[in-house]
């Protein structure tokens, strides 16, 4: 699986407007919705579900990234949105540091393996310092797109 297989290119936000966790989650879910990935009228429900999941345990894994996610029957395939915050957002991350890059994932309910594969893929790249740095530096949608393609083609990014 590649990043381009599940990252929605219509849901890339180089400068998130919101400075709160829940605001960022809503922004990213709405971007997926606008990209036509969530069916009709489901965004509110998804936002609530992602926030609920986040309240159970933070997905701020340290190294300034968070990967909020939830399973939902409104998708039949894994979809992801990516957003960056210049100011940093408090995600109650494991290392207590602000989060600058957020990847939001919505996975189908009945395909746990696919969710794991998408996560694996994401974390392969997120573990690379270079990838995290380039992501944070990406100031345009095109720059994020290029980075995703580059990461998919490279074994070290």
């Amino acid at each position: 699986m590649k990043l381009a297989d599940f990252v929605c290119f219509k849901a890339l936000i180089p400068q998130l407007e919101s400075i709160t966790r829940d605001g960022v989650i809503a922004e990213l879910v709405n971007a997926l919705d606008a990209g036509g990935k969530l069916g009709k009228g489901n965004s509110e429900k998804i936002i609530k579900a992602v926030i609920k999941r986040e309240n159970e345990a933070s997905t701020g894994m340290g190294k300034s990234v968070a990967v909020p996610h939830v399973k939902s029957n409104v998708v039949s395939d894994v979809v992801a949105a990516i957003g960056m915050s210049e100011a940093g957002v408090d995600f109650s991350a494991l290392d207590k540091q602000p989060v600058y890059s957020v990847m939001l994932l919505i996975s189908p309910v009945d395909d746990p393996d696919k969710h794991l594969q998408a996560m694996e893929n994401l974390f392969q790249h997120l573990q690379t310092e270079k990838f995290r740095k380039f992501l944070r530096q990406a100031k345009t949608v095109e720059a994020i797109e290029d980075l995703i393609h580059e990461a998919d083609d490279s074994s070290t990014l």
Partner: peptide, 12 residues
Amino acid sequence: SIMQISVLAATY
């Protein structure tokens, strides 16, 4: 390491 464990993607 939580990130590294996630990379295993260990399915059922």
